[in-house]
């Protein structure tokens, strides 16, 4: 395999709490690689640190420790002006399609803005490029002349995609970008992702709490719990042979839209809620909710084990080569 496009090493982000002087460890030691053209899905409950991780990857947030390398370059070691010049290569889209757009600017102007700031090409060229990108995501010239409130949620999300792609990034992070949309609109946007990836050779990090979406679009999936990854595997493997108790609980919790005759077994909902990241449990962080926890889970943190090529798990009960 060639060198990865994105390499994240032992990334940590903590937020100081004003009241108590404690820190909230939102991301607490995460490492992974994403190859060029690959799609990595990140799933986990809310509060597990997915969005924080996403913002750190695109350097919207400075981590407290660890490295983020894009094409071999350590982003946080770069001086500020150089980092600014790299920004166009990594883009992020957020869940709320409304919040990301300036309500008083026309769609075309919002999409053209990144080009204006970079000063790429003549004004006429910029307009042409913005219009072309809007057309590519399925919005015509008349829609480009509108204001955000005149578009639907799905159309606004298309605008956000166009805006993120107009300077041809190499990496696109989508943070719950389809969560606010209806299934049928979501399907259109997911199709658009796949088409654009094939067309522009994009690399994706798709953050979502919707397992079906993550399974469908991702080549590989990472499961996140309380600031850490607990399992990383190819999407198909994860669906059929998940090993970590948390992953299994997540898979089992998803209500399936299948006729009863095809639904196997009763669901055992996971008890309790995700603990506070201010004071995470000792040992394995999942042990307070784990149905198969053992005494050693409180004592020691589970090490990463390789159970199959590309399939890593951090759980005491899982055997495999250390990695």
């Amino acid at each position: 395999m060639s060198a990865p496009l994105l390499r994240v090493q032992d990334l940590r982000v903590a937020f100081p709490l004003r009241d108590s002087g404690d820190t909230l460890k939102a991301v607490d030691g995460v490492s992974f690689d994403v190859a060029e053209g690959e799609t990595l899905g990140i799933i986990g409950e809310s509060g597990s640190g997915k969005s924080t991780l996403g913002r750190a990857i695109v350097a919207l947030l400075r981590p407290d420790a660890g490295r983020v390398e894009l094409a071999g370059e350590d982003l946080f070691a770069l001086p500020a002006p150089q980092l600014r010049r790299r920004r166009h290569a990594m883009q992020i889209i957020f869940q709320d399609p409304h919040a990301a757009l300036n309500p008083r600017r026309r769609i075309l102007d919002s999409v053209r803005e990144p080009l204006d700031i970079a000063g790429e090409g003549s004004p006429a060229e910029r307009t042409a490029r913005a219009l072309a990108m809007l057309a590519r995501v399925g919005l015509d010239q008349a829609q480009a002349a509108r204001f955000p409130h005149e578009l639907s949620g799905g159309q606004k999300q298309r605008v956000n995609i166009a805006r993120a792609l107009v300077r041809r990034p190499r990496l696109l992070v989508a943070d719950e970008a389809t969560s606010a949309l209806d299934v049928s609109i979501q399907a259109d946007i997911l199709n658009l992702y796949l088409d654009l990836q094939a067309e522009f050779g994009l690399t994706y990090v798709i953050i979502t709490h919707d397992l079906a979406v993550a399974m469908h679009v991702s080549d590989r999936l990472a499961v996140m719990y309380l600031g850490r990854f607990v399992e990383v595997a190819p999407a198909a493997t994860l669906e059929q042979a998940a090993r970590h108790p948390y992953t299994r609980a997540l898979l089992a919790a998803e209500p399936v839209a299948l006729p009863s005759r095809l639904v196997t077994g009763a669901r055992m909902p996971l008890q309790g809620e995700i603990p506070s990241p201010v004071d995470p449990p000792s040992g394995c962080r999942f042990r307070t909710r784990c149905p198969v926890a053992e005494p050693r889970c409180a004592a020691a943190e589970p090490a990463w084990r390789q159970v199959a090529p590309g399939h890593r798990v951090a759980c005491h009960l899982v055997e495999g080569a250390a990695c």
Binding site: S184, A212, H216, V256
Partner: peptide
Amino acid sequence: SGLLRSHPRFAPHRARLPSIGGR
């Protein structure tokens, strides 16, 4: 039918979803 079929579960992995289209 369209609503059910646009769910990501019913398409092959990373294949285009049969979306209803339009609004």
